[in-house]
Simulated scan of single mutants.
Amino acid sequence: MKNVADLFPLAVTENAYSYADYMRLMEKVVLEKRTTGEKQSEDLNHYTRLNLARMQRLNKTVVVTEELKETINNVTIPQTWYILTEAWCGDASQNIPPIVAATLTNPLITVKILLRDENPTIMDAYLTNGGKSIPKLIAVDEDFNELFTWGPRPEEGQEMMRAYKANPVKSYQEFSEEMQRWYIADKSLSLQRELRVLLKGVWLKNEF
């Protein structure tokens, strides 16, 4: 089990957002007609507004499967799930609300949000095919032993991204809209199945 305490100094953990605080940050930047992160543009502002609306809706409507609830409730190890993200990220808007919803029944799991561009050392340690793809979930125990990682999207969505990059016959905006339609149809079930597999792996590791 890899220890990643050096990636999470006190300054990082103390400045991490709770999910409620992160939602308030998103509301704030939308009101100020900007976004989070180093890059600022009208397009990113537009995506941030869309993402806030998506997350507010999903916070009310996401349904956690009974199977994932049972797996979550079997967690007996105190742990923190750090999620790297930025407000403009469409994948984050679809995945973070169900991740948070899944944890609500087990007080041993704490979710903390970290902004990608403010935490380059952590992001560089969790690249996806060399890229700074978000959201990225890193679950650690109380001693900062890495339990599992996930992200930036479910495997089916990741395969869609790989296929698009290999043969970009449509604009990225068209592809992004296609990806969002997939998320809506999937209803976070792919994500929830993948979380169950990861959590069961942690349980097995701690049984033996």
Rank of each mutant, 00 (worst) to 15 (best):
L191F: 01
L31Y: 04
V100T: 08
E177R: 13
C89M: 03
Q192I: 11
Y183F: 14
K33F: 09
I134K: 05
T103Q: 07
L189G: 00
P78I: 11
A11I: 13
T149E: 09
E155T: 13
E142Q: 14
N74C: 11
K33Y: 09
V4Y: 07
D143E: 14
P98I: 10
I134N: 05
F175A: 03
E70R: 15
T80M: 04
R153M: 11
L147I: 09
T149S: 11
M160Q: 05
A92R: 05
A163F: 00
L199A: 07
R49I: 12
I83F: 01
V12S: 01
F8R: 06
A166K: 06
K28C: 06
P78Y: 13
D43C: 00
E42P: 00
Q94S: 06
Q180I: 12
Y17W: 05
N167I: 02
M161R: 01
V64M: 06
D143I: 08
F144R: 07
L127E: 10
E174L: 13
T103F: 08
D6A: 09
M161G: 00
L114N: 01
H46C: 02
P154K: 04
R34K: 15
E194A: 02
R24W: 00
T65G: 07
N129H: 14
D141P: 09
R162P: 00
K112C: 04
K205A: 15
V29A: 08
D141T: 07
E178D: 15
S171Y: 08
T35L: 04
N206A: 10
L127V: 08
N74R: 11
A102R: 06
R196K: 14
I113C: 00
I99Q: 08
T110Y: 01
T80P: 11
T128P: 07
Y164E: 08
